[in-house]
Design a binder for these strands. Structure first.
Lengths: 153, 153
DNA sequence: CGGCGTTGCATTAGCCTCTAATGTAATCCC
DNA sequence: GGGATTACATTAGAGGCTAATGCAACGCCG
């Protein structure tokens, strides 16, 4: 291993560890603030999960890193808006299956469209190489997030 | 302009616009959840701003995208913890200058150290090329965030 | 099959942080 | 100098979360 490369990697690691939390927070806040739909971060996360299929209350709580009562209340809110529905789990009388309604899928698409519009506008100024770098970075972040989420705590 | 490149760029733009909000939210939540220090996202942002120098209440409100009363309350909390201090602005009797104390700088360093530890652990599994891509992506995100923040609304 | 610990969700009370509306004092400008 | 403006504080209220608790269904072991 060449010394020069090691130093470069180490410097980049520090830079990333320093900057990534801040950038992630800033971006997250920008998206939440600019959206005309009033959807909280956890609500958006739940809608995305439900797009993959029905989930139990406690499953959602685990996936979104909040407590089970928080999901119960959140599902109540989404149910009031007609975006999700509760149904009985045939295999377990205690459990509840939450699933996305058609209106919920529409809402999710509208939310995505807003984010897309917001980003496309700014990304028009990016060069091709930069776009490609960002695309690769998203993939890497994806794995990073998966690893961090699998951590015991 | 070659058609192939245009298609590639367009595909990547869609991919980024789709994934970036989600990844940013997920990362932001992970950092906030895993930190042992109870510091809200806005509090962390304010501490980082103050590291660059004293700010007025309303300046902080503009930079952190929250209302002025929210910053007044937030500065009260940080003041109670001994992390910031208020002082009079010599050039304007109405204004208040908020500045970081030594304890505040320490707290910020501890917070950064936690994030660093959390990320370094996982990033050990990344390849050199991936680290470099992430480092470049952070720079690009930085410009993107700056552009988005400068938007009227 | 009967009883008991466990599991899954709902409910309640309370906290934290934000916004909106308003108040107060200092400043600017004609 | 006086009215409009600016900078911050205060208050009331809402949203979203946690912790503690309750209740019903499940599963297992004797």
């Amino acid at each position: 291993m060449k010394p020069g490369e090691t130093t470069l990697r180490s410097r980049h690691l520090d830079e990333i560890a320093e900057a990534l939390p801040q950038r992630a927070s800033a971006l997250s806040q920008i998206f939440l603030t600019r959206s005309t739909m009033s959807v909280s971060r956890t609500e958006a996360g739940v809608l995305r999960r439900l797009e993959e299929g029905p989930r139990r209350i406690s499953e959602l709580a685990g996936e979104e890193q909040v407590t089970q009562p928080a999901i119960t209340l959140l599902v109540n809110r989404l149910e009031d808006r007609g975006w999700v529905q509760r149904s009985a789990d045939p295999s377990d009388g205690r459990a509840v299956l939450v699933s996305l309604t058609g209106a919920g899928a529409d809402a999710l698409h509208r939310l995505r469209a807003e984010y897309r519009a917001l980003l496309h506008e700014e990304m028009a100024t990016l060069q091709d190489g930069e776009v490609e770098t960002l695309a690769e970075a998203v993939q890497i972040l994806d794995r990073l997030i998966a690893q961090l989420s699998d951590r015991p705590r």
